[in-house]
């Protein structure tokens, strides 16, 4: 379980996160929605230790990880948590196989043969069995997203964080990635935190939804009930009402 308590982050004079509190329960898929630039990626990067918060704390399986050193973060958190970046962030000087192998070899003490097997399995899970020797530049946008998911799941992490996994994809590819998220959740029993703008399809792949607005989580609900909520800001956001800006 990941618990975020009163998280605060400023960049200079700019307030991004004011008082964010959130719980990610074991085994669930929680989606954080919110307007562009509201701090969703900052929240995710703070959880995974890429950004240091100015206040508040993050509890990871009961342990406060807010002030861990980089090596402690690697040992305690990143060995069990992976993140899928918005643009894939595959290392473009390496083949897909080398990308996954590097991510795997550092985090798990496995033989070359065992790693090769996990790489093959991970690529099959995302439906890309034949791209091992290809470079990221040779792949389409959708394939890059799936290859980056394969890299993230190779070490079989308990937690998966997706930063806008379907942004920039056409509806067919977006649907493919959404289905992939669900199948990974079922097959690998992962706990997932997703940042998404795909409001229409959100209830297909998510169990719970939280709206980040004005530096805070202002509303949470079950994804299946998101269209029946009475909260005016939440309703305004998911229905695309410009009025909530004021």
């Amino acid at each position: 379980m990941v618990i975020v308590e009163h998280l605060r982050k400023y960049f200079g004079e700019t307030r991004v996160l004011e008082d964010v509190s959130l719980v990610l329960n074991d085994g669930e898929i929680l989606t954080v929605i919110g307007m562009s630039g509201v701090g969703k990626s900052v929240l995710m990067k703070t959880i995974v230790g890429l950004i240091e918060p100015d206040g508040g704390r993050v509890l990871f399986d009961g342990v406060d990880i807010t002030n861990l050193s980089e090596s402690e973060y690697n040992d305690r958190v990143r060995s069990r948590m992976s993140m899928i970046f918005q643009q894939g962030a595959l290392w473009d000087s390496m083949t897909i196989e080398e990308n996954i192998d590097l991510a795997l070899s550092i985090r798990r003490n496995l033989s070359r043969k065992e790693r090769a097997e996990l790489i093959r399995e991970s690529l099959e899970l995302v439906g890309l069995p034949d791209v091992q020797k290809m470079y990221p530049e040779e792949l389409s946008g959708g394939m890059i997203k799936r290859a980056s998911i394969a890299r993230a799941i190779a070490a079989r992490p308990k937690y998966l964080l997706y930063d806008e996994p379907t942004t920039g994809l056409d509806p067919v590819l977006a649907e493919m990635v959404n289905r992939l998220i669900i199948s990974l959740h079922r097959e690998l029993h992962t706990t997932s935190l997703i940042i998404s703008h795909d409001i229409e399809n959100l209830r297909k792949f998510s169990q719970r939804v939280a709206l980040l607005f004005d530096g805070r989580i202002v509303h949470e609900c079950a994804a299946s009930e998101m269209w029946q909520q009475s909260d005016p800001v939440f309703n305004g956001f998911i229905r695309g009402e410009v009025g909530i800006l004021s």
Partner: peptide, 10 residues
């Protein structure tokens, strides 16, 4: 974000 990805992958 490739450098961030390195850090996330430990």
């Amino acid at each position: 974000e490739q450098i961030d990805a390195l850090r996330v992958m430990a």
